[in-house]
Structure formats: C-alpha cells, structure tokens
Nucleic acid binder design. Sequence first.
DNA 1: GCGTCGTCCTGCGCGC
DNA 2: TGCGCGCAGGACGACG
Length: 265
Amino acid sequence: MPELPEVETVRRMIAPHVEGRRLRAVRHRDPDRYPSLEGAANRRVHALRRRGKYLIFALEGGLELIVHLGMSGSLRLDEGRHTRARIELDGATLYFNDPRRFGRLRLVLRGRYEAIPTLARMGPEPLSRAFTARSFAARLRRMQRPLKTALLTQEPVAGLGNIYADEALWKARLRPLHPAHALGDAEVRRLHRAVRAVLRRAVELGGSTLGDGAYTRPDGEPGYFQIEHAVYGRAGEACPRCGAKVARFVLGGRSTHVCPRCQRL
DNA sequence: GCGTCGTCCTGCGCGC
DNA sequence: TGCGCGCAGGACGACG
C-alpha cells in the first residue's frame, strides 16, 4: 500500500534514471485507466517530484505526467509479472507494475489538478515547513468526521494512508474515532509531531513491505518499517508502550488498529 | 456542502 | 488437493 514513505522511496530511486532524460513514449493497452498520454512523448523530464502519494514527472512544455500507485503499484527498473505500462526514456525504461490495477496515469497541464480532486484539495507536505501545528489545527477544525477518516482524505495533511494514520494516532495517544474538529491545541501539537516522526522514520527505512507482498522498492527489495509498526497489523499483540492487547475494528470501511488503554482521548 | 458507503480489482489465506 | 469465499485498500461517484 504505497503511502508517502513508499512513494518517496520510489521517487529517490527512480529520479537518477529519469531526470534530464527525454521521455520517448508511454506504452500500455488500457486507454480507460491511462487516458490520453500521447502528449507526453518526446518531452524532456525536468524533474521527478512527489506530492502526497502522487509522483509527478515535470515535463518540458508545461506538462506533468501524474502517477498514482494505487494500493499495489510500483515503478520498477525491470519487467514484473503485472506490468501494465512502460515509460520509455532515452537510455532507460520504467515498468509500471500494478497487480490490482488501482493505479492511475494522467497527463495534465502544470498545476491543473481539477480532474484529480484529491490532489487539488491536498493539505501541506508533512515533512515541509509549510506543515505547522497551527495550519493543521485550522484544517482539522473544519471537519466533523472521526480523526482517522479526516486524515485519510489528505486534506489536513498529505500522504497518510491506513498504515501511517494508525501508527501516528497511536504515537500521539489519540482515538481514531475522536471528532477531528474537537481536538484541543495540545492534542493537535502531539499529532503534528507524531505524523512527522512516523513518516520521517518510515522514509529512512524505505517504507513498509507487508506480507501480502504488494509494495517493493524499484529494485525489488522490501522496505523495513513494518518491523517497527506498533499497532498496524498487530491485533492481539501487546502494545509496545503499555502492554495492553492491540485491538482491531473497522472504521469507514478500513481496518483500524488501536491500543485501547493508551489511546484514550 | 458534508459525511458515508459501495465500487473497482486481484492475490492470498482460510475453511471445508 | 482443490475449490470457493472473504478480505485487503486509495480514490471517487452516488446518495442521503
């Protein structure tokens, strides 16, 4: 499940193979999922950027090739069993491997994200200076929904998915069901620190690679943050902070993991 | 306008 | 052994 740390790991590994090179063509057999990409052909790649969970190939001529990895996608340097598209560059080919076909490729004018609503409404980058406790609080206070559901919209802050939302809420000792708008200043500061700490550490370890095998780095190697998961995927195990049994329940259709003793607010 | 739910898609684990 | 079912999840459209 590529979230910010996994997408950032992919970006760092792929960028040297891409930046400064000319993109020759994007080849695929699924025009419904990957529509109108012909315009990307024969344009130099100025930079490979990341915004939340989206990879953005900044192309000459003011275009951007937007890649979303979905829940099982990866960009690889070798052909995989589930290659859905090939991004051909001078001297390199990237293989878009996506077993569950949730990933998407789009070509847009620079900064014109109307067709990608999540990207258009996305909150600040969590590891940038723009992400302050004050701006975080302002965004959370507009939302009535449960804290975790709010985080997954990408609007309070970019890049959190199911794994890192659970881990950050555990670290901040906050209940996923707590209404987002009702968080006090001290709690927002705790969550702000927790989001940054969890994501920074996960990026250091190359993201999380889970048992059902979806995400690997572009070279096929796993990430290692799953070893440090405190609650995600650990229902029934002891909370590493207080020893109580980690609980699992479904919230907004997503499995959610908490320590019932130390996530009280 | 906001929140919730169903849908997409496929591999895997489990029960029988 | 082999089959079938249920689950996992990010984004988004439909609906209340």
